[in-house]
Amino acid sequence: MKDIDERGYANPDVLVSTEWVAEHLDDSSVRFVESNEDPLVYPAGHIPGAVEVDWTRDLNDQLRRDYLGHESFAALASRIGITPETTVVFYGDKNNWWACYAFWVFQLFGHSNAKVMDGGSLKWKQEGRPVDRQKPSFEATTYDAPSRDDSKIRAFRDQVLAHIDAARPTVDVRSPEEFSGERMHMPDYPNEGALRGGHIPGAKNVPWARAIDPADGTFKDAEALRGIYQDELGLTPDSNLVVYCRIGERSSHTWFVLTYLLGFRNVRNYDGSWTEWGNLVGVPIEK
């Protein structure tokens, strides 16, 4: 894989390499944040000094289906010892999918000084870099968090209904089996928590992990990404676009790719996704 600066990304600075991380392990202006799907991955061994941000405990409201509010975000930021000036580098398991989700939630609070470690945990460990099991603690900081801004990068169901009524593009980043609704018909097995299978009418299916080189978890270069999202789907950086999956975690990865690596200017993540749409009464569904 080419160096990050040579891949033609619109915003190459949003990615850092494992080498860069290794050189900044003791940099107090940088905080490494690991976010995983698997709750055992971080405690089993993480980048020295990295702190865990868990989506269920740290990023979600504990009562309603929603994200944390600005007071909770300020408390989280204080606990992990960051200020608005801290460079937060996200990384994690499974091609950085939960890392991108955490990155997306941090952007709801305007923490733009954020980056993703290319390749995530997979590449770090493949390279034999150091890991430890010690949970770091940091001196509490004061973080004057703004109110959460859901208007720019988050979409709600009524907005999605208006979006498809206007025949604007939607990308479903789930697997082809979920997109087709096939998985709903498998007896004895989980059905993704939705009463109906299929996809939002008009959505195009691009599984999120197509943006990744599976050998080391790094992002594909811009030319390959344009081949997927622009040549195959006919999207442009000016497209008014909604992405979704099951709960918004995989689609936050695609949101990251489109927004930062390809420079799309108007991508919103519908985090209600299929667990909301597939349970809503009366909304249109396509198979």
């Binding site: 799907e37 004895d188 097995y189 989980p190 928590g193 709960i247 975690e249 667990t275």
Partner: peptide, 16 residues
């Protein structure tokens, strides 16, 4: 405190 995807996968092991 499992994600839905993770719990579904682990439940899939049990169900199988």
């Amino acid at each position: 405190e499992l994600s839905m995807g993770k719990s579904m996968g682990l439940m899939g092991m049990v169900s199988m």
